[in-house]
Amino acid sequence: MDSPTPKRRLSCPDRESAKALRSSLILQPKGGSPLLMLSLEKDGCRVYNPADDTVYETKSDLSGYRFVASSGKWFLVIDSRMKLYIIDVFGEEERIDLPGLETFKGSHFKIERVGEDKIRHVAFRTLSRTDPSTAEDVRGRLWVEDKKGGDFVVLWLFERSNYIAFCKKGDDHYREISTRDGVLGELRGVNDMLLKGYDLYIFATRGFVRHLDLSPRHDGFIDVSEKHSFPRWLPPLSRDEMERINKYKIISCIESIAVVTSSGQVLIVVTYELTSKDRVFHLYKRDPQVLYPTTYDTMFVEVHSLGDEALFLDLGITVPADHTLGIEPNSIYFTRGDRIRHRQTSSLDICVFSLTTKTVKRYPCLDASNIKDAQWFLPS
């Protein structure tokens, strides 16, 4: 990234323990460097670069958006009127307008607007209506092809709804992925989901993984889930960790999923927040040597190392480590665990966890800032 000219300083109460933050126009960063999109309580949005411990302004005013998901330099955002867009955070007003939420075509209900900033669901058979939802209730995922004019896939859902809505480039409406009707019992519901290209992985509420192919060669999508998926139970923790849990009591236990890009292996990631400064992570994969051909049962084995890769939980993927880009090997980049399914006990915790040393690195000046939300992203 070129050295920008300071414009004005952001307030940082903890100036003695952290570098002063500079606010300036953000230029195109080095491709692949990890950055943080910060949503501030009162001062709009900023981008934080850990490499120089600096907060930058964006070229465009993005204060009216809530950031839902990202893919490279592109973000899926929603405004207060519940309108979705894809924006280039480094571009000058570069924005892709998406179909309105009310264009959703479902099998059991439709979406109608309530004023300018709320929507609700109306059942086709009974005409019953749900309580209104706002932009804060929308969760989603995004994938944008890494070339100019490339394809994209957008996913969104409301937490207690029985569907995921999706569209691709060129669509004028959203189609339905049912998460209940017509779905096997063990694959129903959504605890978390990730999108890698046209592959959608849904971590169902019973702990199994559903795999859907959304590629253009299919009319909509097809289910390519494996018969042997993750069971609901997890292996026991070590005696030392059990003692720590009993001592501190768990603030929160969060489960999510990720895809290790080198092999396409789906992992279960479990993090325990023991105190506000103490967090541990465990990675698990299915044991390919222990499969039962007539049942869904399988065994778990713990993954103790990601090797020369780093896991970005906001994106649900791993990428090769690269010291020149500031990507630390065998590490987990974390902000919060309820990116898809809201949990009252989850809280913002911007950190990098080393699987090698079992230690957490945080950013003191960001802790002192008035940050409402944050997401790691990897601009291409």
Rank of each mutant, 00 (worst) to 15 (best):
146 D>P: 03
137 D>K: 15
140 G>D: 04
124 F>L: 12
127 L>W: 03
142 L>H: 07
116 E>S: 13
143 W>F: 12
133 S>T: 10
138 V>R: 05
140 G>I: 03
143 W>Q: 07
118 K>D: 02
145 E>K: 15
113 R>T: 07
134 T>M: 07
148 K>W: 00
118 K>E: 06
145 E>A: 15
135 A>I: 03
138 V>S: 07
149 G>T: 00
147 K>S: 07
126 T>V: 07
121 H>Q: 10
130 T>C: 01
130 T>D: 00
125 R>C: 02
151 D>S: 10
128 S>H: 10
124 F>A: 06
117 D>W: 03
128 S>C: 05
118 K>A: 11
115 G>D: 09
116 E>L: 11
135 A>L: 06
123 A>I: 08
126 T>H: 08
121 H>V: 06
125 R>L: 08
120 R>L: 13
136 E>L: 11
141 R>P: 00
133 S>K: 15
121 H>K: 12
122 V>F: 05
149 G>S: 09
142 L>Y: 10
148 K>C: 00
123 A>N: 14
134 T>N: 05
115 G>Y: 09
128 S>P: 01
121 H>I: 04
143 W>H: 09
115 G>H: 11
134 T>F: 04
151 D>V: 01
132 P>E: 11
123 A>C: 09
136 E>V: 10
123 A>S: 08
129 R>C: 06
124 F>N: 10
116 E>A: 14
139 R>E: 03
146 D>T: 02
126 T>P: 05
127 L>V: 01
131 D>F: 13
145 E>F: 01
127 L>Q: 14
130 T>L: 00
144 V>W: 05
123 A>W: 12
146 D>F: 02
144 V>I: 07
147 K>V: 08
127 L>H: 10
140 G>A: 07
127 L>K: 14
150 G>Y: 09
125 R>F: 04
149 G>R: 04
139 R>Q: 06
